[in-house]
Design a protein around this nucleic acid. Sequence first.
DNA 1: GCCGGGTCAAGAACAGTGTTCTCGTCGAGT
DNA 2: ACTCGACGAGAACACTGTTCTTGACCCGGC
Lengths: 230, 230
Amino acid sequence: MCDTGAVSASSLRARVRSEMHQEIKEAARRRLATEGANLSLRAVARDMGLVASALYRYFPSRDALLTALIIDAYDDLGEAAAEAEAAVARDDLRGRWLAACHAVRSWALAHPAEYGLLYGNPVPGYAAPPETVVPASKVILLLAAIAGEAPDVPAGSPPPEPVRADLRRLIDDQGGGLSEERLDRALLAWTHLFGQVNFEVFHRLDDMVQARAEYFGHHMGLLADLAGLP
Amino acid sequence: MCDTGAVSASSLRARVRSEMHQEIKEAARRRLATEGANLSLRAVARDMGLVASALYRYFPSRDALLTALIIDAYDDLGEAAAEAEAAVARDDLRGRWLAACHAVRSWALAHPAEYGLLYGNPVPGYAAPPETVVPASKVILLLAAIAGEAPDVPAGSPPPEPVRADLRRLIDDQGGGLSEERLDRALLAWTHLFGQVNFEVFHRLDDMVQARAEYFGHHMGLLADLAGLP
DNA sequence: GCCGGGTCAAGAACAGTGTTCTCGTCGAGT
DNA sequence: ACTCGACGAGAACACTGTTCTTGACCCGGC
């Protein structure tokens, strides 16, 4: 066993350590799925046959574990949306738009607790660390990209000047030649998308709307209209 | 009973008890404002110079106190929206609409923790009791009432049939002669309103949009267009 | 061979939490 | 005057996140 040498030993350590990270996160996700949104470190440790303090070898605090879960969830959600959108013919703008929206909704309904971590109440003592901002922006960037391909400039009142300044700054930051009106409508749709998914995941529509998938699709279609998608 | 003696005595008891209820809720609101969303019963008791178990004379559990706070907050929010809307000339439909929306936003920004109780992550072991549903529906009813006065039927694609069935049921429940299209757009706007306020209160727009009031007003105006308001 | 350094997990401890139960105390009604 | 009910305090229980100490283990270097 010693033939592969010291490098493999240290990398083996690292691999075991990274697997432990993964296993802790998976146990935490299972807890999150069964219990509510309040994650108990001790319960996670119990599920793994460990004692709570042992987890501190791998995550410096409960917040760090939450942060890791949040980043994973953002990545997962963004990937689900991107994959669904990529499966639609490029010239079918409305189809790509609706596919992305429905993918976000489906992921949220399948992972309500993780979704709550992302878009619910911010956890009390917890400030979102800067490394979450990039994975968090995947969905809006996807929507903006689709809106950017819209053939017509969106109808309806254009954004007022102070908002245009913000839009210009955002467009410059992404280095893209998006028009302000199109980004404006992409932001509108993005806000609405998560507003509606919030209501549905948090059971605010339960005894109000039965045909929730159709309701969702209909409204996302109206927002596609507003974004100028054909 | 006999005379004013017993009545006044028992009503004095009841009054003191109800004042105690109010004081506990106010102390809890103060805690909620300074600390995050996790309300500590013991801390509330400490602030009042009491011991935690004494609060159980007035609220059977922490959830019951939260429920009382939630109902108060729904009432407060609904009242703020209704008052702002009532201050606008009746024939200025768009003005009434925007006034209600801005009132919701202002209330939420002024009471972020209480807003989080209403529209954030549902508290883990906590199921919204049925007595919250009436105060919770005040804002959507207000928006629907304004949309119901719209002169034109809203433009754009009408809701598909399964959704129409839900809309019809909702309209019948409220006993009002609202058209399905108008309620559809009111629901759209309601969802968007709270989606946008969520994003703003939960700091999702912090380093994205500077002109947040204008951004909000612009988008609520677009939704007024969609609802057919002149 | 053995020995030191590093990694790991356990366990105890501390300060908190919600909740329940018991035990005095005090005030009002009969 | 006595009784009964409401009230608040305090202890206790089962939890929580976090820190620190202690002991076991493995692995490279002497």
